[in-house]
């Protein structure tokens, strides 16, 4: 009886994964901390930086590709303006790595990170900042505080990442573009222009479905533009999506199709069609002899689905999107 109890206790204590905090990490954390205006903020940033770095090292050594540089926790402005400890996992999302001191029983999940996260890892950090314990992982949080008993063993993160990677239907999530998270194939418009010598001045064929906006002029701070190469058997075109956030949950989508450097005009007969979730065609255009671009503009709400179909002769490509 006593044996079993001891074994249980041993298993519970052994759930935490002990990992070192290297001098490199400590130095970076100190540097980021010294950029902060208050002592409280400095300690917050120091601990956040350590937590993210330790999780990053752990995931990388077990073969998970991470993009630390793209994480908000690595952006000095965002470190200052929010309590963020995220780690970007390409094509999957942001993992939040929350620190906790050894003197504490639980960690607080700040409202800054309640949304847009694929999961949360709890990292306990010792007083000297030399040892970290990965206490565990949870895919969601339902309250402001997290304690060890809320967590699954840390290795469950691999199951979760694998699940997320393989269950996403091949559709592009445009909201993530505002988070600077882009799927493979979607390149910065400038990169495509530079490498394909596309002249930006266009003779557009197109249409715009824009709803009247109440104020005289609206502007948005964020305009994201990405392009993708679409290759038919003898022609390659560039599909460009330009996003503008216009209201809290409304986005203007500007779809353009351009030829590449080798052609002045779009292939004759190229069709661009946009359909909603019910497969209802709500916009289309067809390239005529001297069109060097097609442009279709419409607005949609966050969460809405649409698909773009490009057809030329027998070939067609479909790109699925959710705003």
């Amino acid at each position: 009886m006593a044996d079993r109890k001891d074994t249980c206790k041993l298993n519970f204590m052994q759930s935490a994964l002990l990992l070192p905090i290297s001098l490199t990490i400590r130095t970076t954390a100190q540097q980021f901390a010294s950029e902060q205006p208050t002592l409280e903020k400095a300690e917050q940033v120091r601990l956040n930086t350590i937590a993210v770095s330790v999780v990053n090292d752990y995931l990388q050594m077990l073969g998970v590709k991470t993009n630390l540089a793209n994480s908000d926790s690595q952006n000095p402005v965002l470190r200052l303006c929010a309590n963020v400890a995220d780690l970007d996992i390409p094509k999957i999302g942001r993992l939040e790595c929350r620190p906790m001191k050894t003197s504490e029983d639980f960690c607080v999940i700040p409202p800054d990170v309640w949304h847009s996260r694929i999961g949360y890892v709890m990292v306990q950090i010792n007083q000297d900042y030399t040892e970290a314990k990965l206490l565990g992982f949870t895919p969601t949080v339902h309250q402001e505080t997290l304690s060890e008993s809320d967590l699954q063993p840390i290795e469950e993160i691999f199951t979760h990442l694998h699940y997320l990677k393989n269950t996403t239907t091949p559709q592009t999530n445009l909201s993530r573009w505002f988070d600077h998270l882009f799927d493979v194939g979607w390149e910065a418009y400038q990169t495509l222009i530079n490498s394909h010598h596309v002249t930006p001045a266009f003779n557009f064929r197109g249409a715009a479905l824009a709803e009247p906006i109440k104020s005289n002029e609206w502007r948005s701070i964020i305009e994201i533009r990405r392009g993708k190469l679409i290759t038919f058997s003898h022609h390659t075109v560039i599909l460009v999506i330009n996003l503008k956030a216009i209201l809290e949950d409304r986005v203007e989508i500007n779809v353009q199709v351009h030829p590449t450097e080798f052609e002045l005009y779009l292939p004759l007969g190229l069709q661009v069609m946009i359909c909603d979730h019910a497969d209802h065609l709500f916009m289309e255009a067809q390239a005529r002899q001297t069109d060097n671009g097609i442009q279709l503009i419409f607005t949609g709400e966050i969460g809405e689905y649409f698909k773009i179909r490009l057809a030329l002769g027998h070939h067609s490509f479909i790109e699925h999107f959710v705003i």
Binding site: D72, V77, C81, D112, W114, S116, F178, I222, E248
Partner: peptide, 19 residues
């Protein structure tokens, strides 16, 4: 929750771009 969602989705991107 509503405030932080607004902050994360609409305001942080502006700060991110500024950075």
């Amino acid at each position: 929750s509503t405030l932080s969602s607004f902050y994360q989705r609409r305001c942080l991107p502006c700060l991110r771009e500024f950075g």
